[in-house]
């Protein structure tokens, strides 16, 4: 097993997981409480990575961060190099790809909090932020744990998007799932098996934690 690939994968998944909790929480709050009539469009966009082939998503991300797109050029003028085939690019792509796995469990958990508790909180003088931090968040901890575990595990296991956006650069963009593919291509079955077994055990552990804290881990969008 290549420890460099494993460390890189863990670092990527950790950063993406933290990012997604930060970005996903306000998105989930909005999805859970907004009464905007076109909300379903946003829900669909957020859920897209669930159904889209990773290569399609990877392809568009690659185009978007490439030096021909305005976004890519802006990044290049600021940082001096392209996002494509770098660790940072991989972080952006993975975050987009795993977004629904962070947003959906949190939105479902937020929406399940009794509306009367929120009314009671505002009647007692609390601001929306205060209500969120003191009532909604503590009552949604299982949902937040589910979001964290799912987005971490999903980032560890992704393959298509990483290959499209990151390529296969050891120490920069080669994650364990790419490494397994590489090992199989090179007929190094023993190595491939070690890594695969490690991933299998990790996935089992992640799901055990998830179902241990929450019986309704795989929730769909919150009920309307």
């Amino acid at each position: 097993m290549n420890w460099q690939d494993l460390a890189l994968t863990a670092k990527l998944a950790g950063i993406v997981c933290a990012m997604l909790l930060l970005i996903g929480m306000p998105v989930a709050y909005w999805v859970a409480y907004s009464r905007w009539r076109w909300k379903f469009l946003v829900e669909s966009v957020v859920a897209l990575p669930l159904v889209l082939p990773p290569t399609v998503l990877g392809f568009y991300i690659l185009v978007a961060i490439g030096s021909r797109s305005p976004l890519g050029r802006l990044y290049e003028t600021w940082f001096g190099h392209s996002l494509a085939f770098t660790f940072e690019g991989l972080v952006v792509a993975s975050a987009l790809y795993s977004l629904p796995f962070a947003v959906q469990p949190m939105a479902a958990a937020f929406a399940q909090v009794d509306r009367r508790l929120l009314d009671a909180s505002s009647i007692l003088g609390a601001s929306r932020m205060h209500t969120f931090l003191r009532i909604i968040l503590p009552l949604s901890i299982p949902g937040v744990i589910t979001a964290a575990v799912l987005s971490f595990a999903h980032t560890v296991g992704e393959f298509g998007v990483v290959l499209m956006v990151g390529g296969n650069i050891p120490g920069a963009t080669r994650t364990v799932s790419i490494a397994i593919y590489d090992d199989v291509q090179g007929l190094r079955y023993l190595q491939a098996n070690q890594t695969a077994l490690a991933l299998l055990l990790f996935s089992f552990l992640a799901l055990s934690i998830l179902y241990g804290v929450n019986r309704r881990a795989w929730t769909a969008w919150p009920p309307r």
């Binding site: 009794d114 009367r116 508790l117 009314d119 009671a120 909180s121 505002s122 009647i123 007692l124 003088g125 609390a126 601001s127 003191r134 009532i135």
Partner: peptide, 15 residues
């Protein structure tokens, strides 16, 4: 939040 009214619901809504 600024009306300074107390309201006890039928369900009480204790946290």
């Amino acid at each position: 939040s600024q009306r300074s009214i107390a309201y006890v619901f039928q369900t009480l809504a204790l946290f």
